[in-house]
Design a protein around this nucleic acid. Structure first.
Length: 466
RNA sequence: GCCCCGUUCGUCUAGUGGUCCAGGACGUCGGAUUCUCAUUCCGAAAAUCAGGGGUUCAACUCCCCUACGGGGUACCA
């Protein structure tokens, strides 16, 4: 077979949502895994609904996901000449005709048909009228009246449509813009797209498109219709399902790789494997293992996967992505502390980057603020000796390693006869303000002698003031 | 209405006629490790394979019907 050429053709009427991203991903993965070409095209023939802001948003989302394209973005609005040319071809070879039926007449025809229990399709009035082009004419395809059109689908198998069910649909509007089915086919022919992977809401459009390919005498591409992504209520994804835009997930602190992993896995499988790196996916993704049924978007599983990807990431890579979140949290400068070590301690306990930055705050704060409950429970006179002793131990040591810190604690344990667990909690609250944090030794090691002593002394005076 | 697609634990799924009284993951619930929280590790509950008919020695797997869900039926994409 020739080089595989796929494409992603969103219409710019909103942000890139989860479902669209998945479609883009499938096409991209398939191209990348088969040394193919991936084309990006903007379907903006509906001027009413298309906006530049949407175009920008979609590009931003794609770039964040790391989905790159080899050609494009092409804009259908800039290719009107091409469509005109192709319309003319069909007029010339007799596969299309001008139609001047008014919207009102069409409505009546449709209504009549339905009332008689027939299909609400165009009655073909202008098909043989030989109308000439004029201001009030649209162009319709002369579709086959009988027989059958079969879609040989990569995921659904062979799907048969009766041509009787189809009608002479419009390919060019009165305002000379192409309609969707027509523009896609023209572009896909012109761009040599030979593999079309898209949502299965397009399955019933496919026979129309096949009719167009035939009218042009062009070879058919391969079609693969993947099941859609549904909301928790099993209906089509929409705003009311909450955050559905790709960039919203970025802003919540999800890793692009995790989102990709989740999205691809929703509707595709590779045995029992759940965790995939981007490389894995490119290598292993195929069309054979795409499932047939719609999947429900499950944020919990995404989050779990995100936590796994965080754990599997290099701390230096996380650092770059974490800094914006820290800034948003009021951390002006992350200098003075080795951020990668901070991240190292937070990796096993972070679900998202946002989560991580929240947990990192105590490292960077000037003044520890104590949780009321935590202070009440652990910062009282009973813990004074331990804190005091530890302060001394730390002061008398280098504290240049975790081992050093551990020794300091051991010494306090020996002197007081208290269990480590009894000592650790008050210290933890003194250093972080909270009862839950990374390991106490590593915290002290990262914070450094100076800050630790300062925080311990603050805790001591806090207790004394009570 | 008509046409098309789909239906395995709550969710994502494995399963392509016998190895399935159905496996994995998320979530849930126990337990172990532990300086807290996590992590990690063990374990449990959870699917009459939508229902009903066939075909077959044998069906989650093939065929038909029904129900339910989704999509299409536009001078939207």
């Amino acid at each position: 077979m020739d080089q595989i050429i796929t494409r992603f053709p969103p219409s710019p009427s909103g942000y890139l949502h989860i479902g669209g991203a998945r479609t883009a991903l499938f096409n991209w993965l398939y191209a990348r895994g088969n040394s193919g070409k991936f084309i990006f095209r903007i379907e903006d023939t509906d001027f009413e609904r298309s906006t530049q802001a949407s175009v920008d948003a979609i590009i931003e989302a794609l770039e964040w996901l790391g989905i790159d394209w080899d050609e494009g973005p092409y804009f259908q609005s800039q290719r009107l000449g091409l469509y005109q040319e192709y319309v003319q071809k069909l007029i010339d070879n007799g596969h299309a005709y001008y139609c001047n039926c008014s919207k009102e007449r069409l409505d009546i025809v449709r209504k009549e048909a339905t009332s008689q229990g027939k299909n609400p399709k165009y009655d073909g009035k202008c098909r043989n009228l030989g109308l000439k082009k004029s201001d009030d004419t649209a162009v319709r395809i002369a579709a086959p009246l009988t027989g059958v059109t079969v879609v040989d689908d990569l995921v659904k198998g062979s799907v048969v449509f009766q041509n009787l069910e189809l009608d002479d649909f419009i390919i060019q509007r009165t305002n000379r813009t192409p309609t969707y089915n027509f523009a896609v086919v023209v572009d896909d022919i012109a761009m040599n797209v030979n593999t079309i992977i898209r949502g299965d809401d397009h399955l019933s459009n496919t026979p129309k498109q096949i009719i167009l390919y035939r009218a042009f005498g062009s070879p058919l591409p391969k079609f693969g219709h993947v099941p859609m992504v549904l909301g928790p209520d099993k209906t089509r994804l929409s705003k009311r399902h909450g955050a559905m835009s790709v960039t919203a997930y970025r802003d919540m602190g999800y890793l692009a790789d995790a989102l990709i992993n989740y999205l691809v896995r929703l509707g595709w499988s590779h045995g029992d494997q759940e965790f995939f790196t981007r490389k894995d996916l490119i290598q292993k993704f195929n069309l054979e293992n795409i499932g047939k049924s719609a999947g429900i978007f499950n944020p919990e599983k995404l989050t779990a996967l995100n936590a796994e990807h965080i754990k599997a990431s290099q701390s230096k890579d996380i650092a770059k992505k974490l800094i914006p979140f820290l800034k948003e949290n009021g951390v002006i400068s992350n200098e003075g502390l080795y951020i990668e070590k901070v991240i190292e301690t937070l990796k096993p306990r972070s679900k998202t980057l946002k989560d991580m930055s929240n947990q990192a705050l105590f490292y960077y704060t000037e003044d520890v603020t104590y949780d009321i409950e935590a202070a009440k429970k652990f910062l009282d006179s009973s813990s004074l000796t331990a804190i005091d002793l530890l302060t001394q131990e730390i002061e008398n040591r280098e504290c240049s390693s975790e081992k050093d810190v551990e020794d300091a604690f051991k010494s306090v344990v020996d002197k007081t006869g208290l269990k480590l667990s009894k000592i650790a909690q008050p210290i933890r609250v003194a250093l972080t303000g909270k009862t839950a944090s990374p390991g106490i030794f590593e915290i002290i090691d990262i914070l450094g002698k100076e800050k630790v002593i300062c925080r311990l002394k603050n805790a001591i005076s806090f207790i004394k003031q009570k």
